[in-house]
């Protein structure tokens, strides 16, 4: 399981003010490519436990945050560090590509 569910309400406290970087998976129930990415994101949550928090955000229920960050296609994955989005990928990607993104975000 991913660490937690991100909502418009808890976004500031759980993501922007988080001490550890946060990977947010923007998804929706009807999105087929999201179903490809979800299990990979859950594996990453396990592998990077302690280094990064992983949250899932349903864009149907939380349109405000998705809108604020210009999400117009899902799946979109964003890594937030110190309150800022530092990495973004759009569209389904393989595990290697996603690990690279997380590594770069952690290193940068």
């Amino acid at each position: 399981m991913a660490d937690f569910v991100v909502t418009d309400q808890n976004f500031e406290a759980e993501v922007l003010k988080s001490e550890t970087p946060v990977l947010v998976d923007f998804w929706a129930e009807w999105c087929q490519p999201c179903k490809i990415v979800s299990p990979i994101v859950e594996e990453l949550a396990k592998e990077y436990a302690g280094k990064i928090k992983v949250g899932k955000m349903d864009v149907d229920e939380n349109p405000q945050t998705a809108g604020n960050y210009g999400v117009m296609s899902i799946p979109t994955l964003m890594v937030f560090k110190n309150g800022q989005p530092v990495k973004t990928t759009i569209g389904a990607q393989g595990k290697d590509a996603l690990k690279r993104m997380v590594d770069e975000a952690l290193a940068g």
């Binding site: 929706a28 009807w30 999105c31 087929q32 490519p33 864009v59 210009g70």
Partner: peptide
């Protein structure tokens, strides 16, 4: 992914 798309069923709701 920022307004240009090839998949309406994926992105229509935006």
């Amino acid at each position: 992914g920022r307004g240009v798309s090839s998949c309406a069923t994926c992105d229509a709701m935006f």
